[in-house]
Amino acid sequence: MQPNVNVVSLVSIGRHPQSGRSRRAEQDGRAVELGLSLVGEALTVVHVGEDQDPVLRQYAGMGLPSMTVLSQGKECDALPVLTSFLKAQLPSVVLTGVRSESGESSGMLPYLLAEALGWPLVPRVAEILHIKDGQAEVLLALPRGQRRSVQVTLPFIASVDNAAQEARQTAFGPGLRATLHVETVDSVVDDAAIQWEMSAAKPRPKRLKVVKAKTAADRMKAATAKPVGGGGKIMKNETPAEKAQAIFDLLLEEKVVR
């Protein structure tokens, strides 16, 4: 526990995949859990949206004495409100889920926030090992249970992966008694989003799974082996300019930039 670090977890209203009902979002719950394990009750948990939503009590039931709600309607954009809130608060660490379970669910919020604040973004965090001297050692979640340890300078934004510690059980009583600090904010209506028409997603046709492996050993290998990139190239001794050029060429080739 490092109570002297200012940590903020951002939470949204989740949506149960089976019932479609509001719930504590899976990844946001993990963001709160990670925040609680870092700084305990000193954690600030922020929600942008309606302050009456009962799901907020589910987050509070994880043992939060209070929560901050930046109150605005569903049609408003969360980004400007959060940016100004964080600029005023200046926390060291901001934790979010990778993507929300409702709304646009684009997963862009942490990136846009990082851009607006000019902070580094650490995507898909599994664990924050320790925070010391303005530096944090963070474990990133990679596919197949692999982890990568990175050093990042405070302040930073991290999105929390499903590999992080599962959110603890929510308790009814503390959730009910927690204080909600409701702040009225200058909301900006998301003009683009209100034009959109939402409709239920149709299940995409699934590609047939052709099992190529002939033996159990092959299947085991296929399930556990590291993916071997075919066209990859490791550049270690080149100059930074050469490395940047290689990246730029790749982006051109993949038509990411034109």
Binding site: H16, Q18, S19, R21, R23, G61, M62, G63, R168, Q169, T170, A171, F172, G173, P174
Partner: peptide
Amino acid sequence: TLEKGDTPNKGAQVLENIIATDNPNG
């Protein structure tokens, strides 16, 4: 359960399922 949020083993998951889907298995 209501104050400590400490239902052992699958308890938390089952309760969460019941709350979100009205049945214990989600």
